[in-house]
Amino acid sequence: MTVLVTGAAGFIGAYTCQALATRGERVLGLDNYNDYYDPQLKRDRVAALCPQVDIRTLDLTDRDGLASLFDEIRPSRVVHLAAQAGVRYSLQNPHAYVDSNLVGFVNMLELCRHRGVQHLVYASSSSVYGDSATPPFSEDQRVDQPRSLYAATKAANELMAHTYAQLYGLRATGLRFFTVYGPWGRPDMAPLLFSRAVLAGRPIEVFNEGRMRRDFTHVSDIVAGILGALDHPSEAPVPHRVFNLGNHTPVELERFIEVIATAAGRPAQKVYRPMQPGDMVETMADTARARAAFGFEPVTPIEAGLPPVVAWCRDYFGAAA
């Protein structure tokens, strides 16, 4: 009984592989090690977190390669985390999102359908809520007014997965992640950008003049939610469900920066900027549905979760960060 994890060298993917292997699962991963950010960080992450896991280099658009892999390992369950991430980058390189998040997602759906996969758990995003939702964001709210192409592709994934559940009975669960952070995180996201800048004495850009609130969620809480969802597929006639995975406690951006500065032992130099296209002013997860379905209960506040991120940045990137 093999669990296939896509995006296994990614931030959430490597921690997920670690957790699955730790509990005794047979795990195999795939990743294309693209250069959206430094592939060496991905390789170092794998070496640190899940060196025992076999991770194949493969792209989601390689239909023949994916089919061969499925025929070789015959996964019983799939955790599909591979995607082109990032809101702002989707404004610069839209085709990367179409290839990975749309074409690649259909490839995974088809393989899961035809190879008898028992449960597909896939990554969605809090970005799907766009302009139409009001905090706290509930899974019952509309997601048809996205602010970025990235968000649009994730909303499309949910629609496609629902269609496959309805037509073919494919058990699928979508997880809307809310601003995940932790050591070995993505270098394009605020936790690492801010930590590295403060450590190096560089100014940080604070968008929307600092008037932003984010539901920052520690990677350990996210991984607990992924495993919980994986273990509880839907038994409904149309076996597709979507869950929020967030901390349910939005944090003011200024407070977030303050915690980083305290951990770094030096003040943050802030340069205030207007709102960036595609960004959201506030995110906040209603997690009642995930709590009821599989006991999801995040336990890590930023005061406990951020200092290890700052320490990891200092160790990994050096004094200059």
Rank of each mutant, 00 (worst) to 15 (best):
residue 3 V to T: 15
residue 7 G to V: 09
residue 7 G to T: 09
residue 10 G to F: 14
residue 13 G to Y: 03
residue 17 C to Q: 02
residue 18 Q to A: 12
residue 20 L to T: 05
residue 25 E to Q: 09
residue 36 Y to I: 11
residue 38 D to E: 02
residue 39 P to C: 08
residue 39 P to R: 08
residue 40 Q to W: 12
residue 41 L to P: 01
residue 43 R to G: 05
residue 61 T to D: 11
residue 62 D to A: 05
residue 63 R to Y: 13
residue 65 G to K: 14
residue 65 G to F: 11
residue 66 L to C: 01
residue 71 D to K: 11
residue 74 R to P: 08
residue 78 V to M: 04
residue 79 V to G: 06
residue 81 L to H: 08
residue 82 A to F: 05
residue 86 G to Y: 13
residue 86 G to C: 07
residue 89 Y to W: 13
residue 90 S to W: 04
residue 97 Y to G: 09
residue 97 Y to S: 08
residue 97 Y to H: 13
residue 98 V to H: 12
residue 99 D to C: 04
residue 102 L to T: 14
residue 112 C to Y: 05
residue 114 H to E: 10
residue 118 Q to V: 04
residue 121 V to G: 11
residue 123 A to W: 11
residue 123 A to P: 06
residue 130 G to L: 07
residue 132 S to H: 10
residue 132 S to M: 08
residue 134 T to I: 08
residue 136 P to H: 01
residue 138 S to G: 06
residue 138 S to F: 01
residue 139 E to T: 10
residue 140 D to T: 14
residue 150 Y to S: 02
residue 151 A to M: 08
residue 152 A to K: 13
residue 154 K to D: 06
residue 160 M to N: 03
residue 162 H to A: 10
residue 163 T to W: 11
residue 164 Y to E: 06
residue 166 Q to N: 09
residue 167 L to K: 15
residue 169 G to N: 05
residue 173 T to D: 10
residue 174 G to T: 07
residue 176 R to K: 14
residue 180 V to E: 00
residue 183 P to I: 02
residue 186 R to N: 15
residue 187 P to L: 01
residue 189 M to Q: 10
residue 190 A to G: 07
residue 199 L to P: 09
residue 200 A to K: 11
residue 207 F to G: 02
residue 210 G to N: 11
residue 212 M to T: 15
residue 213 R to Y: 03
residue 216 F to R: 04
residue 217 T to H: 00
residue 222 I to G: 00
residue 223 V to P: 09
residue 224 A to W: 12
residue 224 A to T: 15
residue 228 G to R: 08
residue 229 A to I: 12
residue 231 D to V: 08
residue 232 H to V: 14
residue 233 P to Q: 06
residue 234 S to Y: 11
residue 238 V to P: 01
residue 241 R to Q: 15
residue 241 R to G: 01
residue 243 F to Q: 01
residue 248 H to C: 10
residue 251 V to T: 14
residue 253 L to S: 08
residue 256 F to N: 03
residue 257 I to K: 07
residue 259 V to Q: 00
residue 259 V to L: 00
residue 260 I to Q: 02
residue 263 A to V: 08
residue 265 G to N: 08
residue 272 Y to R: 14
residue 276 Q to I: 13
residue 277 P to D: 11
residue 278 G to F: 09
residue 278 G to P: 03
residue 278 G to M: 02
residue 280 M to D: 10
residue 284 M to G: 09
residue 285 A to Y: 11
residue 285 A to W: 12
residue 287 T to W: 01
residue 288 A to R: 10
residue 288 A to L: 06
residue 290 A to G: 06
residue 291 R to Q: 15
residue 295 G to I: 04
residue 298 P to K: 06
residue 299 V to F: 04
residue 300 T to N: 00
residue 301 P to T: 01
residue 303 E to G: 01
residue 311 A to E: 15
residue 312 W to E: 05
residue 313 C to R: 08
residue 315 D to I: 05
residue 316 Y to M: 13
residue 318 G to F: 02
residue 318 G to C: 04
